[in-house]
Computed example of a mutant assay.
Amino acid sequence: MTYSEPARPADSRARSLASSSSSAVPPTGITIYGCGQDEAALFRELAPRYDVIPTIAEAPVSEANVELAAGNPCISIGHKTRVTNPTLLALAETGVRYISTRSIGYNHIDVKYAESIGITVENVAYSPDSVADFTLMQMLMLMRNAKTIISRAGVHDYRLNDVRGRELRDLTVGVVGTGRIGAAVMDRLQGFGCRTLAYDTRPVAAAEYVSLDELLRSSDIVTLHTPLTPDTHHLLNGERIEQMKPGAFVINTGRGPLIDTEALVPALESGRLGGAALDVLEGEEGIFYADHRDKPIKNKLLLLLQELPNVIVSPHTAYYTDHALSDTVENSIANCMKFEGRNQHG
């Protein structure tokens, strides 16, 4: 589904801004791909403030719909579907020169190839609090055996049995990656009184930094907040999982391939690790964000993980709050406008 619509200023101030802007230059067109209904509503609301005419497509960008970008050198894309190199080439041939991806990560797009054909790719920033809050929730759910307690209560089994929890103040938490999200997680952990260790190739936060090996050996909980790069792919592989403290827990709200899932599953099944909370997973593409109640799941490791009582799986939803979504949409528009400005004046 696609549509274009003229800017409609939402209030007198926005109307004044749009009017003064449009008197100097015509409205800017931006094509937005892979846009859900919630994002579409925000694009409609925010576009007038920037004197933008949005063309919104529910479908992700592909070779079949690049014509929707004709005349619009800037486009915005979602992170849920990989952008192929043939699609990038088709976009370049259509006149696209800038892509704003509505995500922090770039692993769904070949940035170097895009640059080689004249397309600049940039990400967006959004409130780190969304992912940080979710990460703390996952920690607490793991420490208090929430999955088992809730599932038992659902069948009216209210016994305590073996669901005694642990308190964060008694534990050491290792934070891998201390950018905006990792730092926000550490800020929250201070209130729980636990010891916090940190690892990053570029230490910037006020934290107790240690080597990755020491962090893995010493931490009761390891939480991952590093970007996915060739160097961080399978950062937690079989060898590093063996280094972890026996019974430790792992949390991943970064990117699925940070963990070697084939090595993780047996460590969880055997009790070598105490549990895991995974908001992202290798092979999630084509599964997360879709209704599969009446469809087979081909990712067998996902099915195995969901069966384990000590594993919480959520469908890449840590970022998904009203505040973060608004940040994402507005910053995607702003990025496109900045690129247009650089081209016009630089």
Rank of each mutant, 00 (worst) to 15 (best):
A248Y: 03
Y320F: 01
P26H: 11
G286H: 05
A64I: 11
L303R: 13
F339I: 10
G36Q: 12
I32D: 06
P26Q: 11
V173H: 02
T135H: 04
A7H: 05
H292Q: 05
F288K: 11
T253A: 07
R8Q: 14
S100W: 02
H79T: 14
T328P: 01
L136V: 15
V121F: 07
R44Q: 14
I99V: 15
V61H: 04
E285Y: 14
I333V: 04
G275Q: 06
F339Q: 08
V222N: 11
G254N: 09
I30R: 05
T81N: 13
L88I: 09
L42H: 04
L281W: 05
R15V: 08
T81R: 12
I75T: 10
V204Q: 15
R169N: 15
R44T: 15
L236A: 05
H108M: 13
P6I: 01
A207F: 03
N335F: 01
Y320I: 05
G154V: 10
Y320M: 09
P203I: 03
M337D: 02
E122A: 10
P86R: 02
V250L: 01
P266V: 12
D129A: 10
M337E: 00
A41Y: 04
I241T: 08
L273E: 06
C35P: 14
A41V: 08
R49P: 05
N335G: 06
S23I: 14
S116G: 10
I117Y: 09
K80C: 10
F134A: 12
V25F: 11
L46P: 10
R195C: 02
P227K: 03
D213V: 07
A276W: 06
E63A: 14
R152P: 07
D327H: 08
